[in-house]
Nucleic acid binder design. Sequence first.
DNA 1: GACATAAACGAACGTTCGTGCTTATCTTCA
DNA 2: TGAAGATAAGCACGAACGTTCGTTTATGTC
Lengths: 202, 202
Amino acid sequence: MRKGDLTRQAILDRATGLASKVGLEGLTIGALATELQLSKSGLFAHFHSKEALQLQVLDHGAAVFVESVIRPAIAEPRGEPRIRALFERWLAWTQSSPLPGGCLFVQAAVELDDRPGPVRDRLVQFQRQWLGVIVTSMELGIDAGAFHNVADPEQFAHDVYGVMLAYHHASRLLRDPRAEARARRAFDALLQSAVAPAETHR
Amino acid sequence: MRKGDLTRQAILDRATGLASKVGLEGLTIGALATELQLSKSGLFAHFHSKEALQLQVLDHGAAVFVESVIRPAIAEPRGEPRIRALFERWLAWTQSSPLPGGCLFVQAAVELDDRPGPVRDRLVQFQRQWLGVIVTSMELGIDAGAFHNVADPEQFAHDVYGVMLAYHHASRLLRDPRAEARARRAFDALLQSAVAPAETHR
DNA sequence: GACATAAACGAACGTTCGTGCTTATCTTCA
DNA sequence: TGAAGATAAGCACGAACGTTCGTTTATGTC
């Protein structure tokens, strides 16, 4: 790997963390350069435009997300364990050290929800994929008999994401120490109402 | 009412809508002045600092929220009707014309969650009050026998807010036409699991 | 109608924003 | 080791940021 790629990677690492705090728009080339002890122009040369930087930050964040949340969770057995792993690893992700400002995508979602352009498009794509992972995991669980077949995977994914957003709100804005317990309880209730009858009384 | 108060009100009206799109930080005095066909300095004189403007925008938004969501909902009879009214009016609020960018508080919550200061403090206060309204409405419903007494009002409020945030995400970022139906279904499920047994089989 | 106050303006302040261009300093490989 | 090419710095730009100033225009009161 070339030297340039190394610094570019270092820039993206730092930029991802910074963007989790101040957003993709609040992310500033000058501040980022200062943090990395680089000159503004030197850093800028890696990306040629701020929008390109934002896109790469999003891509970088997505790559990390896949490695630390999705891939390990997919390794779990189908049904409840896999769904639970997705949820638990998402919780851990929002608290992970490279994200001092919470989940980058939650921040970006609110920031970009009415700001058309390629950055928004990319984010929408990622969010759909993420929800798609939950939907698919749910469908596979139904096929395996872990959940009863009247369960609606898309509704379930939507609801689980709501639990995640509520946790983000309670924990980050309200600094509520019970946020995590609340999120788990909500998730359990959601999961409980989806498990197949045979599993319910074990 | 003096002339100055009138324009100040007009400024806050417009600023609230603008902030719902671009956030309280993205809200810019120059852009706001242009929209209102005022000079930057003339507008600035009403607030003396940007932070003061942000605080007043928050206050103004909260006042409108109380009038259009909380007060009418509180007028409904205790129990299910009141809780449902809170939820339905919140849905309508996020789509109301003065808020082209969705709920101002959702935007602000994500933006300020790790930006300490008086603006954040004010927002936290409002959010606690809002959740408190749901909690109290739930408690009153339990007292009236509409919900069974094992229901946890704080957990319920937390969960309902999650449904609201998921709706905001699905509708605003993903532009999912099924967002509203999903939100209602999630809310109904939440409410169903709280209603007293006598009410369940009617 | 004269006077005092309130409200809005226009110009400028110092910073910071994103973005170019030109130069210098490193890596890399023959 | 030295030439070629990649990488970062230096410097400057126009625009926008929040803020301050002195001045002008509108409003309200006696």
